[in-house]
Amino acid sequence: MKKEYIKHLCIRKLCILGVRKLNYLRIMGNSKLFKGSLNTIILKMLEEEGKMYGYEITQKVKELTKGELNITEGALYPALHKLEAEGLLDVEVAKVDNRLRKYYKLTEQGEKETVNRLAELEDFIRSMQQLVNPDWSIQ
């Protein structure tokens, strides 16, 4: 009886670990796919919202993807700074509550670049769909 109970516990533990591992892999896999599109995602967010701060972007992306995509601060800020240095983003510092906050918004060049990058991404998705599942491809 005791042996069976231990066996049952072990199987249960393994199942939990397995599900966790699968979830981890699923998230990691998605992250890798999303990684190449991170700059485009940021530009798109800013195009829609006007101006946003770093933490707000991570939360908005999480909300829109229902938790599927979690942009870490370690990935977000280098991307934001690169886009800023390339002249695609403009920065504004404002006092909010009891601290200063850095807002990012698109420059004129950034607006043009967003349109180009979204078109590129759309083409990529269309090509991928044609490759992976021709029946579902966007017409």
């Binding site: 601060e73 370690g74 800020y77 280098p78 991307a79 700074h81 690169k82 886009l83 800023e84 240095a85 390339e86 002249g87």
Partner: peptide
């Protein structure tokens, strides 16, 4: 702590190459 420690390095790298590219 790891985020804070890496932030400045990543900032410098991103900015440096961004400006050189510009």
């Amino acid at each position: 702590r790891p985020f804070v420690k890496n932030y400045e390095n990543q900032w410098q790298k991103a900015k440096h190459w961004g400006h050189q590219k510009a």
